[in-house]
């Protein structure tokens, strides 16, 4: 693999983690982001679960999309891209269910750490978002690139949720005005973090 390809992948990765952070620039996956960011430990495991599921579903959906749905695909010539949404949702939900059953059966330790977050991920829009952005025509990415993109997006989610958990643990001791306590101040902080992340725009040339 020559340098330019690796360089290209690095750009995709960094863009996904920082400049196009799925949470802070697209505001996807907000519900779990707000709900799980109360403690660092939970945020960390939730983030890891998102990374895992995003990468796996991106691979599966990439195969389905470019193997079946897109016009002129090897398995079916017709353009079925209008089915993308429903099929992606179905595969993500089924995959998460399957993973939950497998780890509940085989590793109670892993289930303890990640399992309880999996039901939350089933309907996580960040994951569907990554899957849908990946197949946008102007992205035009290969399987490796889309894997890297999914990995970066998952890690971006992990980064954002852990940052939030850290800030919220500081907030416990802060004197927040009563009407803003809880959700209010969390939304404001999310906005400020998003603005801070906007500062990275232009750092990675796409």
């Amino acid at each position: 693999m020559d340098g330019s390809i690796i360089g290209g992948l690095a750009v995709v990765f960094l863009a996904a983690v920082i400049t196009n952070n799925i949470l802070l620039t697209r505001f996807l996956g907000m519900c779990s982001f707000i709900a799980i960011s109360r403690s660092m430990r939970n945020a960390w495991y939730m983030g890891l679960a998102v990374v895992f599921v995003t990468v796996c579903t991106a691979l599966i959906n990439y195969a389905i999309y470019f193997g079946v749905l897109v016009e002129g695909a090897p398995l079916l010539q017709t353009d079925l891209t209008y089915l993308t949404f429903i099929i992606f949702i179905a595969t993500i939900a089924a995959f998460v269910q399957l993973v939950e059953m497998v780890i509940e059966r085989f590793s109670s330790r892993l289930y303890n750490a990640l399992g309880i977050y999996l039901p939350l991920i089933t309907v996580n829009c960040a994951i569907l978002g990554v899957n849908l952005f990946m197949i946008e025509p102007d992205m035009d990415i290969s399987l490796i690139q889309s894997t890297i993109y999914a990995l970066g997006s998952g890690l971006g989610f992990l980064l954002a949720i852990c940052l939030m958990a850290g800030l919220r643990s500081k907030l416990e001791a802060a004197d927040v005005p009563a009407p803003l306590r809880g959700l209010g101040i969390t939304m404001i902080i999310t906005g400020l973090m998003a603005m801070a992340f906007m500062g990275f725009t232009g750092m990675v040339q796409q």
């Binding site: 389905i64 079946v68 749905l69 079916l76 017709t78 079925l80 209008y82 089915l83 429903i86 099929i87 179905a90 595969t91």
Partner: peptide, 9 residues
């Protein structure tokens, strides 16, 4: 085809 694809999946 759409129905078949959805059905199979």
């Amino acid at each position: 085809e759409a129905i078949v694809v959805l059905g199979i999946l």
